[in-house]
């Protein structure tokens, strides 16, 4: 259950816990002071999630927890047991990029690529809830993700293009992209 590190003032115990990340249960041992960001990057090897401030001031570390975009730098890992965590590593289906990923790569939504995982996860939550968001809604949704490269315009366009592609796919397959049910 625990692993210890000696330290002044007595033993400090690590925690062992099962986290549900990108559809898989993973057992992980970590220092209890760690945030979800640190456990993902340092203990689970999921370095796709980035960090720019670790204080909730930039949005680079956004991941989905039970479908909602949260800042993993301010989520205690110890509070994540039993929750569904999604990171950028879980976006693609095998070799097939998620439409958001494809559109960001095609249309300049990713320049340096550093804020990109956080933006992608935030945009995924947006499109999961609204398959056809207007420009204003997109701006609002990603206004918690700072980007220093793009000026945001190509990010909006990438999200809009992804939404278009997803709607086209859904129309073709007859399923509704937001509820995964079959359209009447």
């Amino acid at each position: 259950m625990t692993d210890t590190q000696s330290a002044p003032g007595g033993a400090r115990r690590n925690l062992r816990m099962v986290l549900h990340v990108n559809g898989e249960d993973t057992e992980v041992l970590f220092a209890p002071y760690k945030t979800l960001l640190e456990v993902l990057r340092e203990d689970l090897g999921l370095t796709g999630t980035k960090h720019g401030c670790e204080l909730g001031e930039c949005g680079a570390c956004a991941v989905l927890v039970d479908g909602l975009p949260l800042l993993s730098c301010l989520v205690l890992a110890v509070e994540c047991e039993g929750k569904a965590i999604e990171t950028v590593e879980g976006l693609a289906r095998g070799p097939t990029l998620h439409p958001l990923q494809a559109a960001f790569a095609d249309l300049g939504g990713a320049q340096c690529g550093y804020c990109t995982p956080g933006v992608l996860m935030t945009a995924k939550a947006l499109l999961d809830g609204d398959p056809d968001p207007c420009r204003e809604k997109i701006r609002e949704a990603i206004s918690g993700n700072l980007c220093r490269c793009t000026g945001y315009q190509q990010i909006y366009e990438s999200i809009e293009e992804a939404a278009r592609r997803m709607r086209a796919d859904a129309a073709q397959s007859g399923s509704c992209p937001c509820c995964e049910g079959t359209a009447p």
């Binding site: 990029l97 990923q101 990109t116 995982p117």
Partner: peptide, 11 residues
């Protein structure tokens, strides 16, 4: 699409 685009969007 930029040649390094895929790497950037997959983390």
């Amino acid at each position: 699409r930029r040649v390094d685009g895929r790497a950037k969007v997959t983390g």
